[in-house]
């Protein structure tokens, strides 16, 4: 099947006062239509940068230095600004963590959803209003007529995230990127939000990229998992395969550090070391090498680290597989 989104050898750098951060290094990842894929990694691993690069909302300091992002075969990076604006919201959309801050504090939430609907359609004012109420009902907001007139500060975090989802789904995008959508929400709200995202996506055939540092959350909700470390995708595989037999040493370490997957608390293990400083000019081809228990001299040999197949739909970027 042709992928919906195909990120190929994407490199992104950030210019900072303290040097250039090599945030993404030749990152490749495919997302199939309608699938739910979890993109997992610790803070600074490049999950959000990947999402922002796909959406075209990287901040000023960021520079895309190579690669392509194909959406249904078309390279988004070569799209004109107007075409890209039109693609956002319809091709792909994104929901953010910290849902209240992600909404305009001084605009009624219904108007904010209406702005998105109006941007991508030529509906009449009445039709837009009806569509807004329909979207609010879809994300199960009680009393939508009244809530449409509310401001973000009058709504709970969970309700704000439902508004965010309604906005993101307003124009039936093919891909929904959920960037830590449940961080900062309480546990029951988290579950409800995840269920809602899955349900809406399944119904519309929308693919979902769930970006999270929560392995258990991703494992419980996703068809496939992509593990990121220091700007690389180190392993991609169907969820069951990766949980049963993680091939990359980082993935294995990550799974041993998750309470619900490790069995008892005594078995929990931390991954030694920390991510390398991405401003270093001499980053090794494998950015996990310096923390890796299986490091060999050939791990440090020059040349890019490729993702290679090691099972059905199972890709891993490691030169010394167990």
């Amino acid at each position: 099947m042709t992928p919906l989104l195909s990120i190929r050898a994407l490199s992104v750098e950030f210019d900072t006062r303290h040097g250039t951060v090599h945030a993404l290094d030749r990152l490749s990842l495919d997302i199939a239509p309608g699938e739910i894929i979890g993109i997992i990694g610790e803070s600074g691993s490049g999950k959000s940068v990947t999402a922002h690069a796909v959406m075209g909302i990287l901040d000023r300091a960021a520079r895309i230095t190579g690669g392509e992002v194909l959406f249904q075969g078309e390279n988004l990076l070569e799209m004109g600004r107007r075409a890209r604006d039109g693609w956002r919201g319809r091709g792909a959309s994104i929901i953010f963590q910290n849902p209240r801050a992600a909404l305009n504090p001084i605009r009624a939430v219904g108007d904010q959803i209406a702005d998105v609907v109006a941007r991508h359609s030529s509906l009449s004012r009445r039709a837009i209003r009806a569509r807004v109420l329909e979207l609010l009902r879809h994300v199960r907001i009680p009393d939508p007529e009244r809530r449409a007139r509310a401001y973000p500060f009058q709504l709970s975090g969970g309700l704000c995230q439902r508004i965010g989802i309604a906005m993101a789904l307003a124009c039936a995008p093919r891909l929904l990127i959920a960037d830590e959508p449940t961080t900062g929400l309480d546990v029951t709200t988290q579950a409800a939000i995840m269920a809602l995202i899955r349900e809406r996506a399944r119904e519309a055939g929308t693919a979902v990229a769930l970006i999270t540092h929560d392995v258990a959350l991703a494992a419980g909700n996703c068809d496939r998992l992509a593990i990121m470390h220091a700007g690389h995708v180190v392993e991609v595989a169907p969820t069951a395969a990766i949980l049963a037999r993680p091939r990359h040493p980082y993935t294995a370490g990550l799974l041993r550090s998750v309470p619900s997957l490790a069995g008892s608390l005594d078995q929990l293990q931390a991954i030694p070391g920390s991510m390398p400083d991405l401003r270093r000019p001499d980053l090794p081809p494998c950015r996990f090498a310096e923390r890796c228990p299986r490091r060999l001299p050939r791990c440090d040999a020059p040349g890019p680290l490729a993702l290679t197949a090691c099972g059905p739909g199972h890709l891993v970027a490691c030169r010394n597989l167990p």
Binding site: R88, L103, V116, R119, M167, A168
Partner: peptide, 15 residues
């Protein structure tokens, strides 16, 4: 630079 501007950009709203 605030989050809600990023949301608006991501939704494709005009500049």
């Amino acid at each position: 630079g605030s989050d809600f501007i990023r949301t608006a950009r991501a939704a494709g709203l005009s500049r």
